[in-house]
Design a protein around this nucleic acid. Structure first.
Lengths: 235, 235
DNA sequence: AAGGCAAAAAGTGCATGCAGTTGCCTGTGG
DNA sequence: CCACAGGCAACTGCATGCACTTTTTGCCTT
């Protein structure tokens, strides 16, 4: 190895590669079907092929890349059917998180959820899409954590990241920001009441709406879309 | 490499290693916390360390092994809390599968589910635990497939296999076989009626019961249990 | 005898090398 | 002009080697 690795800091070289390549896939910088050449990647990141191979193996285990024996790796290509199944799963998972959150969040968690949610209302009025997106991500992450179930958390975040490339730009629909906030509001209200079923239903509806918008978008995008550099979503 | 690989057949060496090691973990032959020495494993399977390393990486990505940088890999050690979260997730996932199955199974799938379920009644009367266990696995797999959702299927089977080591011998509880069948019956009935909510609830209850029995058992087993060679469960 | 320390042993992490495979490219026959 | 076979370049898969880190061991000190 020549010098210190530049791009990412912590962990072994393999970990860094997993993050580096994984990020590029999740953010859509590498698009489904794109070829992942071991030699080029190794050169690109200035490491040998060994850690690259290991990283590709792990990413393949995560479902982010697809490996054809003796024929190289490509960014996982998601069929329309599988995409739909992931969106549907996402709705179910978020429903579980919301339900558990309603039942289990500590008062501290509830307070923070409420505060941040109310704060984000301003962003809606301002139409600050990028900032809202940040709060949106935080909001959902709070739900996932609030469920107090490690495994559900893992499945949910994993699914979410695999869906990330397909959610982009869905916030462009006019009025989506305000609607999103209202949907969040329904979830928050239910959670504050401790009403698990209502929270779950509200969350499921919320995600379903996002899914439909995204899915339509993704449908057009999937085969060979333009490489936009947009923020990732505003669900 | 000396000769043809012996133990497992298809795929690359790495795939074989993933299966070989993964199986040994899932079946409890390798127990949580056990050290996974690259050199020994390589010698044990007569390959070089490289594919072993890749396999360990992938298993780590799946959560079956834990890797401490520079300090080797061990079979993933599951905390009591994480174990509980997986059992709880399992109940939720099976509920989803059952609900979807009720709504979506084709008539062929429904017929087969019913037939096999009725056939297994005989095994209960005979007290044929091992044979019942086989039908039990089939039964649940049918539910997972019947949901017609690839991603849910993946999450469910993954979670199930990670729980496998902790479910063993839970069928030893007296009368468990008959109760298990009755619980299955409730699920089947609801599915036949096309009643998704009832099917979901029945499935969740069923898994919850199994979970409690298993969890208690696992609790005692976890630190350093005897290496029984029992069949895996009768949920 | 217990504790500490240093050197050796063991083991991991990555680079490199070689064999085998795939896919392309070219040249030849139809 | 097209079909196809042979050869070549590119790339994957695995083994091996070396550097570095952790762990163990045995000796020395107190």
């Amino acid at each position: 190895m020549s010098g210190k690795r530049s791009l990412v800091r912590s962990g072994t070289t393999v970990d860094q590669m997993v993050r580096a390549i994984g990020d590029r896939i999740v953010t859509g910088f590498l698009r489904p079907g794109e070829k992942l050449d071991e030699t080029s990647l190794a050169a690109r990141f200035d490491v040998s092929r060994t850690p690259v191979r290991e990283a590709l193996g792990q990413l393949s285990a995560m479902g982010l890349v697809e490996r054809r024996p003796n024929r190289g790796a490509i960014v996982a290509v998601v069929t329309q059917e599988h995409l739909a199944s992931m969106f549907e799963s996402m709705a179910e998972l978020e429903a579980i998180c919301a339900r558990f959150s309603a039942e289990r969040m500590t008062s501290g968690e509830r307070r923070l959820l409420e505060i941040e949610h109310q704060a984000s209302a301003r962003l809606v009025q301002l139409g600050a899409e990028e900032d809202y997106e940040y709060f949106n991500t935080e909001f959902h992450t709070r739900l996932y954590r609030g469920a107090h179930n490690t495994h559900v958390y893992e499945m949910t975040t994993m699914t979410r990241s695999r869906l990330a490339p397909f959610r982009r730009a869905q916030f462009m629909l006019p009025g989506r920001l305000a609607k999103s906030w209202q949907e969040h509001d329904a979830i928050v209200t239910a959670i504050m009441r401790g009403d698990g079923n209502a929270a779950g239903k509200a969350a499921k509806d919320h995600v379903s709406i996002v899914s439909e918008a995204s899915a339509v978008f993704a449908l057009g995008e999937q085969p060979k879309g333009a490489r936009t550099t947009m923020p990732v979503t505003a669900s």
